[in-house]
């Protein structure tokens, strides 16, 4: 799936004395190619995550459009956009993210728990396949509180992939991970892209560039190709 951000920008209003607007992302044009890993780097606060969230359908841009193929996703109402996101977009968020009361396999199958699946056995079977691929097969029935940072990140990747989405957005997927886990995660994402999924990664990681097909840099809300 080809994703295009057409002149997308985002302004925030900071709370405090008086009105203080700031532009997190200036008007930006970007294209994420099918079957490629696109990397976006930049300093903290440069607007990388904001751009990712806009492209992933999680944050409406102040101006511009986000096109998935020929469809402008922000023209959809919340129900339809959420359904679209569930079916087509996998997001690996920054930090440790899990629903604490669900087991690892339930967290991975979260989108099916939200909507329901006709065949639980096949959903769980694919979840187990992903867990095995990411090296966490024995953690199926553990709660997230029992997992390490690396294991949680791999669980989040499996959760993003469970519906075999057309695009995956990963926000600092290697943050806080050791070298071994960093390499593992980047290899997984690269491999996913090679299998036909569009992958968009925001990362500080210097080594990430060697896995990328396209590299961009962001500075003070402005994007530039590397």
């Amino acid at each position: 799936m080809i994703i295009t951000g057409n002149n997308v920008s985002k302004e925030f209003i900071r709370q405090g004395k008086g009105t203080n607007r700031f532009v997190a992302v200036k008007q930006t044009q970007i294209r994420i190619e099918e079957g490629k890993l696109t990397l976006l780097t930049g300093r903290s606060g440069s607007g990388k995550s904001t751009l990712l969230n806009m492209l992933a359908g999680l944050l409406a841009p102040t101006s511009g459009t986000v096109m998935y193929g020929d469809d402008d996703i922000y023209s959809l109402d919340d129900e339809k956009l959420s359904a679209f996101r569930m079916e087509n977009i996998g997001v690996i968020p920054q930090g440790q993210t899990a629903v604490g009361t669900l087991t690892v396999i339930e967290n991975i199958c979260l989108s099916y728990m939200l909507k329901g699946a006709d065949d639980r056995a096949s959903v769980y079977s694919y979840a187990r396949e992903l867990m095995a691929r990411f090296g966490i097969p024995e953690l199926e029935n553990e709660l997230p509180s029992a997992l390490s940072g690396g294991e949680l990140r791999r669980m989040a990747i499996a959760r993003a992939m469970i519906r075999k989405p057309g695009v995956i957005f990963a926000d600092e997927p290697t943050c806080d991970l050791d070298d071994e886990n960093t390499e593992l995660v980047l290899k997984i994402l690269k491999n996913t892209a090679e299998n036909g999924t569009s992958v968009f990664v925001v990362s500080h990681e210097k080594d990430a560039a060697q896995y990328a097909d396209f590299c961009y840099s962001m500075n003070a809300g402005e994007i530039s190709a590397l």
């Binding site: 959420s82 079916e87 629903v99 979260l110 939200l114």
Partner: peptide, 9 residues
Amino acid sequence: AVLRIAGAS
């Protein structure tokens, strides 16, 4: 927020 990214409206 995790539910939202998983597709919950």
